[in-house]
C-alpha cells in the first residue's frame, strides 16, 4: 500500500480541472476587462488616490454586495465580480479534488481536502471582520 501509480487522483479528472481553471481565468479576465473599459471611460480623468488607505465600501467587500453591484452593471462592481471569479478558481479546484478522492475512496485525503476547502470558504465567506 504505497500509492504507486496513484500520485495523481485521476489523470482525466485533473486534465478536466486544468481546462476548467483556464476557462475560469479567461472568463474572469474578460469581465475585469469589460468593467475596466467602462471604469476608465467614466473615471479616466479623475485623480487616483491610493496613498492613504481607506478600505473599500462595504458593498465591495462581500459576495452578496459584489453580485448586486455587478448585476446593476456598476463599473467597479463588475471589475470586483471578475476578481471574485478569479479568487473562486482555486476553490473550485479544491472542490473537484474532494470529488476525485471520494471516487478513489481515499478517506484520509477526502478529510484533508475537506478541511482545506473549509478554510478557503471560511476566509471568503465566513470571516466578516
Amino acid at each position: 500500500m504505497d500509492g504507486q501509480g496513484e500520485s495523481t487522483p485521476d489523470e482525466r479528472v485533473e486534465v478536466f480541472i486544468g481546462t476548467l481553471l483556464r476557462a475560469g481565468v479567461t472568463l474572469a479576465a474578460a469581465v475585469v476587462f469589460l468593467g475596466g473599459v467602462a471604469y476608465l471611460a467614466s473615471h479616466g480623468t479623475q485623480i487616483p488616490d491610493y496613498r492613504i488607505f481607506r478600505g473599500e465600501p462595504s458593498d465591495l467587500r462581500n459576495i452578496a454586495g459584489i453580485v448586486t453591484d455587478a448585476a446593476r452593471l456598476s463599473r467597479r462592481g463588475l471589475i470586483q465580480f471578475g476578481l471574485l471569479l478569479l479568487i473562486a478558481t482555486p476553490i473550485v479546484r479544491v472542490g473537484f479534488t474532494v470529488l476525485a478522492f471520494i471516487l478513489q475512496k481515499d478517506k484520509t485525503y477526502v478529510l484533508i481536502t475537506l478541511i482545506v476547502l473549509g478554510i478557503l470558504l471560511y476566509s471568503l465567506v465566513g470571516a466578516g471582520w
Partner: peptide, 10 residues
C-alpha cells in the same frame, strides 16, 4: 476582500 483591501480600480 472582506477587509476592503482589494480595490477594483487598482
Amino acid at each position: 476582500l472582506n477587509r476592503g483591501y482589494i480595490d477594483p480600480g487598482l
